[in-house]
Design a protein around this nucleic acid. Structure first.
Length: 482
RNA sequence: GCCGAGGUGGCAGAAUGGUUAAUGCGACGGACUGCAGAUCCGUUUCCUGGGGGUUCGAUUCCCUCCCUCGGCUCCA
């Protein structure tokens, strides 16, 4: 198990990660409320924590990663009322779409997506415990957590209780003793979906599902808790209060990681601002790997600005610089086999491949410096491109050494999956090959007008031709998902 | 107002108390090409918000001011 450091939002320092029971790592990340289509901001958080889980697995930890799904809440009920669709069904529908997007993005590290409504008994039990311990009170069929009873309430967000009180932004809720109290069990109004509980029919508050789920799956304390930065207050603050209040054990999570917000022209991307780019749109337009690259080519805690299409076009250009040599190497290794005899690379190149692999792990182990890892991969692509004209003569092991950093990135960063070698590519390859051969015949007889015509017609179909000596290769134009 | 993050080249965006301040995009020039593209080489020399201070030396540490963004119970 490699040791690594990570910035912990609670202590506000970069700390060495120490699992509670190595090699096991319990990891929980707040998922979404699927009342609408996911946008590219959701994708950022998902990809970040996917990389965290991948890196930990790569380093020998046994990661148990769960992400909850809030499939019942006010927004779902409101949306259900608007559309006439049952809120639970609505949630299922959007969650399914989310899972499809996750699959496309290569987010495969999540072991389990628990749904709030599947944990009603656990939720009721935890609320009961909080009532027994005096942290909560009943009022008008609802149950509230009394924030003032929990001494360190506000510590995560650095807010003192008095300051964390909502001022004028929200009308005080009748039934609450203090404005900073938050609901654990919300009494149902007529017609709303509800579950039975000792305090009357209702539904769980937003925060309680997470702690009930983690307590039953990961135990009262676990290793890593993640989520978007916007959840720090009040959501994560409330989680800490509930879980530590109920169990009497602290800290709930050893490490708190928060993903920076995706911004749209300098402002946070969110549905309430109406400036969202649907995740599926971006995936369709640029390909999932470009999006993944875009997320990882940034410091995960910093805001990431999306300034329109140009942002992802640039990411696509940059990603291509890595993907193209990676793809060429993969082909070369596939064609020739790992044991193929041939020229060996010079010692120093082989050594620098190994050195880079170590460096990549080192960078990820420094608070998941994905951007710097990518910078190092760009440097490697230059080396690979220098050798590219001589691929034919290289031995299998030498080719593998050139490919090793990309394979590392494939495993840990989840890049280089499925662009250029997808079904589209295989389906149209024969047709493209026919055109390439026709063009070559035209070139051979000096009919460059005809040759350019053929090249141009392919280009308008999104296919670029590149001549290298006597060999012509083709690829999809950047921005076209392949 | 309170809490937090940040202000770096044409753009995006790293890093370090001290040789030429990463990497990518873009631009320009060269090699290669029938042309182009891709690739390689080179250039983009006076880039680290303003003002103080500590230091032999600061972009990096301290103070202050200005500005931007996020959170302050819808939020990933």
């Amino acid at each position: 198990m490699r040791r690594f450091t990570v910035y912990d939002s609670l202590s506000r320092e970069t700390r060495m990660f120490v699992p509670i029971t190595p090699p096991k790592v319990g990891m929980f990340v707040c998922g979404l409320t699927p009342y609408d289509d996911a946008h590219i901001g959701h994708g950022r958080t998902a990809v970040l924590f996917d990389v965290v889980a991948r890196a930990l697995s790569h380093w020998g930890y046994r990661v148990h990663y769960i992400q909850n799904v809030t499939n019942i809440d006010d927004r779902l009920i409101a949306r259900g009322a608007e559309t006439g669709i049952d809120p639970l069904r609505l949630a299922d529908r959007h969650f399914l779409a989310y899972r499809v997007a996750m699959e496309q993005l290569g987010v495969r590290s999540v072991n389990y997506y628990p749904h709030a409504t599947d944990y009603l008994p656990e939720i009721v039990q935890q609320i009961r415990t909080l009532l027994e311990k005096g942290y909560a009170y009943e009022s008008r069929g609802s149950v509230y957590f009394e924030a003032a009873k929990f001494r360190t309430y506000g510590r995560l967000s650095g807010q003192r209780l008095e300051e964390a009180r909502p001022g004028t932004r929200v009308e005080p809720e009748p039934g609450k003793r203090a404005p900073e109290d938050f609901v654990l069990w919300k009494a149902a109004r007529p017609g709303e979906p509800s579950w039975e509980a000792p305090w009357g029919p209702g539904r769980p508050g937003w925060h309680i599902e997470d702690t009930a789920i983690t307590a039953s799956i990961l135990g009262p304390r676990y290793d890593l808790h993640g989520g978007g930065l916007d959840l720090k207050f009040p959501h994560h603050e409330a989680e800490i209060a509930q879980a530590e209040g109920a169990s009497g054990l602290a800290p709930l999570a050893n490490i708190w990681m928060h993903a920076g917000m995706l911004q749209f022209h300098g402002e946070k991307m969110s549905k309430s601002l109406g400036n969202v780019v649907p995740l599926q749109d971006a995936i369709q337009k640029h390909g999932p790997m470009v999006l993944r690259f875009y997320y990882l080519n940034a410091q995960y805690r910093s805001p990431l600005d999306y300034s329109g299409e140009a942002t992802l076009r640039e990411a696509s250009e940059a990603y291509d610089r890595l993907d193209a040599p990676s793809e060429r190497l993969r082909e070369a290794v596939d064609q020739r086999g790992p044991d193929h005899p041939g020229q060996e690379l010079p010692e120093e190149v082989l050594a620098s491949s190994n050195h880079l692999l170590e460096q990549l792990d080192e960078l990820l182990a420094s608070d998941f410096a994905t951007r710097e890892a990518i910078a190092a991969l760009f440097g490697w692509s230059r080396t690979v491109n220098e050798w590219l004209p001589r691929f034919e003569s290289l031995s299998g092991p030498s080719l593998s050494a050139l490919a090793a950093p990309y394979r590392w990135a494939q495993e840990v960063l989840g890049l280089f999956e499925g662009r250029g070698s997808g079904q589209d590519s295989e389906r149209i390859a024969p047709a493209v090959q026919v055109a390439i051969e026709a063009r070559q015949r035209a070139r051979d007889r000096g009919d460059f007008e005809e040759a350019d015509r053929l090249r141009e017609s392919l280009r308008s179909a999104g296919i670029l031709l590149e001549d290298n000596g006597s060999l012509t290769r083709w690829r999809f134009a950047p921005g076209e998902a392949g």
